[in-house]
């Protein structure tokens, strides 16, 4: 296992994901002799995990079972220990595409935070690219180094413990893309510009507040960035449910019994009706939005450094 390469079987030293049920999971470090407690009972690493295929079911001591999954940056994002607020996969997806990341890209990032975006970037730029990530909080930087080592991606990333606003990224004219998730991104635009390649590159800043965005955009313009564009992306999840609705009795004549007041065949054609019609009710499948959803994470401001 590594975060940049799939493996088939679970091995000593792997970081595996224990999947308990919908959205309920946690990461586990696989070690000979180790035990992990779940609500379904104990998992013994030596006998229950090591040597098993990823994706298989493991029966716990109380008889319940869990599925052991191969880690991906996305599963990691859902399960990592939070040391800070983190970026989630919806924003990460757009950042990755709009920064034009691909194998071989050189990327600068600050701050490292809990490493959610870092893992996704490393995955995308491997095997020939590199991530320079700068974090001003010492413990966080150290913890990130440790995680990258455990996830076998340390050769693809350099962690620096410094303040990007004061000291920049520690590299110049090498980056294809720069990403900022810091409280005052406008103070680091100059450093971002000098980290980017001579021929140019892409820039992104993530800020929760519009006031931050305003100052960042002004700074970007002053430094000659082009294609300045601010976006916001929201994820809408739908629960798939079978719903049944009652047919109102409008006192139709008895002979019409089979046809409850509307043309059911035409509705079926629309694909809305997929259940059977029971007496007085109609069943259908629906994608039901969540009662509450994340309505704001942050604004994503993208820009291009061009040669001129």
């Amino acid at each position: 296992m590594s975060f940049v390469e799939y493996g088939d079987t679970i091995r000593e030293g792997d970081t595996a994901i224990v999947f308990l049920g919908h959205e309920s999971m946690f990461p586990v470090k696989v070690q000979h002799g180790s035990k992990t407690q779940t609500k379904y009972g104990v998992i013994r690493h030596s006998t229950d995990l090591i040597g098993k295929k990823y994706g298989s079911k493991v029966t716990c001591s109380k008889g319940g079972w869990v599925v052991i999954l191969h880690p991906t940056p996305e599963l990691w994002t859902m399960n990592l220990p939070h040391r800070t607020q983190i970026l989630y996969s919806t924003d990460i997806s757009l950042i990755t595409m709009m920064l034009e990341l691909k194998p071989g890209s050189i990327v600068c990032e600050s701050g490292t935070g809990s490493g959610s975006l870092s893992h996704a970037i490393i995955r995308t730029v491997a095997p020939t690219g590199h991530l320079y990530t700068v974090e001003f909080h010492q413990q966080r930087a150290e913890k990130a180094v440790e995680e990258f080592r455990e996830h076998k991606v340390e050769h693809l990333v350099t962690v620096k413990n410094q303040d990007v606003c004061k000291n920049g990224f520690g590299v110049s004219n090498v980056a294809d893309a720069v990403f900022l998730d810091i409280p005052s991104p406008w103070e680091a635009i100059g450093h971002a510009k000098s980290a980017l390649k001579v021929e140019g590159g892409r820039f992104c800043s993530f800020s929760p507040c519009i006031e931050q965005v305003q100052r960042t955009c002004l700074a970007l313009e002053e430094h000659g960035f082009t294609e300045i564009n601010t976006l916001e992306i929201l994820l809408r999840v739908y629960n798939v449910r079978t719903i049944s609705l009652q047919i109102p009795d409008l006192g139709k004549a008895a002979e019409d019994n089979s046809n409850p007041g509307f043309d059911s065949s035409s509705q079926a054609n629309q694909g809305v009706l997929c259940g059977s019609q029971q007496q007085g009710t109609v069943q259908f499948k629906s994608g039901v939005p969540l009662r509450e959803m994340v309505g704001h994470t942050g604004y994503l401001t993208f820009a291009t450094k061009s040669l001129l």
Partner: peptide, 23 residues
């Protein structure tokens, strides 16, 4: 299969100008 998820994304563009920022 596990972890099935049905979703869509909403995307909003912003005008950002001093004192005149809005979707």
């Amino acid at each position: 299969v596990i972890n099935l998820k049905l979703s869509e994304t909403w995307l909003r563009n912003y005008q950002v100008l001093p004192d005149r920022s809005h979707p």
